[in-house]
Amino acid sequence: MNAYWKRAFPIYFMILPGFLFFIIFKYIPMIGISIAFIDYSPFKGITGSEWVGLHYFRRLFAEGDFLVLLKNTLLLNLLDVVFFFPAPILVALLLNEVRAKRFKTAVQTILYAPNFISWVVIVGITILLFATGSGGINQILDNWGLGPLELMTDPQYFRWVWLLQNIWQGAGWGAIIFLAALSTIDPTLYEASTMDGANRWRQVWHITLPGLRNVIVIMFILRFGHIMDLGFEHIFLLQNPMNQDVSKVFETFIYKTGLIQGDYSYSTAVGLFKSVVGLVMVWFVNRLAKRMGQEGVF
């Protein structure tokens, strides 16, 4: 046995259980991707169902709503990348600057808590406050003669309501990973720069942010893998007939046309389409990151 294998053997051994997990629970089931290309019937199984090739993809691209779905999906994701993605980083940076330990723990716990409030409740509270007639805030506005703010029904607000609720629920939670990354920054760097007379702002810029760079890049690349994905439940709860032109996305579409009728081939085809777009986007962003001297995800 040569030196490499002697050294590598324990490492492969560490990877082995995880490797087996991926094979058994992730790769064997990949056979299921073929459901997108057959007229799948659970009783005939994958091998017994009729091969239809790209039929379901053609059906998807021919949907009258296809472009609307694509546009809504991409716009919401874009908003999310631009506004939601930096929010947890900002929270982490702010918390990192707090020296009072109790205050820090308290604020962090409060910001983390909304993650455990389900969408049903969050949307419910928003409606309670902003329902056109009975909403608490709308009644106040009405008393001031400002008329109702049709936050839940006017389509122009939909995306922003969705985004703000995302930030409200997820910013504190998302900060955790960046706080963990901050903990790996060598504290002697700060000491040295303080001695050099650098102020706090410069320290954030020259030490803290570079220390986070790795994680930010990875999270950013991975985010693009889900550029076509949106949480179903949140959007579904916010959806109503008035805002459907801006709120219908692939998830809600598939729920209404495919899942209820057990049309698995179609849902699988839509899922596969989304994954392929995600893969292309990640590949592209990953290359960009590597070209800029960063470590990519693969």
Binding site: G64, D65, N240, P241, M242, Q244, D245, T257
Partner: peptide
Amino acid sequence: LEKGSALNESFHKTVIE
């Protein structure tokens, strides 16, 4: 089965509007 719900949905939207 294929289009009914989408069709009814956009019809419904006009009704509400």
